[in-house]
Design a protein around this nucleic acid. Sequence first.
DNA 1: TCGTTATATCGTAATATTGCGATATGGGAA
DNA 2: TTCCCATATCGCAATATTACGATATAACGA
Lengths: 108, 108
Amino acid sequence: MGITKTQGFSEETTSMAELLKALGHPARLSIMMYLANSPQCINSDLVDELPLAQSTVSRHLSELKRVGLIKGTIAGNNISYCVNEDMWDKVKDFFTGTSNLLSPKKCC
Amino acid sequence: MGITKTQGFSEETTSMAELLKALGHPARLSIMMYLANSPQCINSDLVDELPLAQSTVSRHLSELKRVGLIKGTIAGNNISYCVNEDMWDKVKDFFTGTSNLLSPKKCC
DNA sequence: TCGTTATATCGTAATATTGCGATATGGGAA
DNA sequence: TTCCCATATCGCAATATTACGATATAACGA
C-alpha cells in the first residue's frame, strides 16, 4: 500500500505526525537547524551546505514549506527562507506540554 | 530512488531524524501518546485502540522498538510495552535545548 | 539584448513504506 | 495433548519517497 491511514486518528495527532515526518529526514532536519542558528535569514546557499543536488534541496524546502515549518520571501534574485516560529513552537510545545509528561515509572 | 542519503550528515542529525521519522506516523505517535499517558504499563490492547489490523500494529510497534523509543517485556502470555524514557528525553531535549533556540527575528 | 544566477518543476528510476490476510510461534488452559 | 490467546512474521500489492539530471522561469547585470 504505502498509503497512511488517517481515518480513526484525531486531527491533532495526524497534523503533528505530519510535522514530525517532515522533520524526520536528515536533509530537512539540517535545513531547520541551519535556519534556526543562522545569524540572518538565509537563502539557499543551503545547496552548498548539504550533500544533495540543487533540485533535491528545492524539493525538501518545498516540503517544509508545505507543512508550514518554514516561510520564504523573495529578496531580489534569491529567496530568503526562515523558520515559521509559530509552527516550530507548536512542535516544541508538543514535547514540553504537560499532557505528554511521562509518569516516572520504570516498568520494562 | 526512495533511499535516504546519510553520507554528509552528522551522526547526531541522522539519528535524531530517524527518531522523528518514527514518530511521524499517526499510528506510531498514537502508540507513544497512549503509552505515555496510560496509568500502567500497557500491552497491546493497542489493537483495540487503533484503526489498524493486528499485524499492522505489530509492525509499528517493532519499528518503535527498533529505534529504541519503546521497550517491551514478556509478562505471562502478553507483552508489556512502555516508553523508553531515555530515548524520549533525547527527543525532548532536542527541542528544548538551547542550541536550537531561535533568535527572535521575524524576517519572512 | 544576452548571459548569468537562483529556484522551481518535470520525468524517471530505484527503493521504502504501509496495510492486510494468512500463517507461524509460544504459552496457558481445558 | 489439544485448543485458544496474544504476537510476530511473511508475502503481497499499492503507493509514497528520494534523488538526480534536464529543463523551465524569472530577475538582475553587463
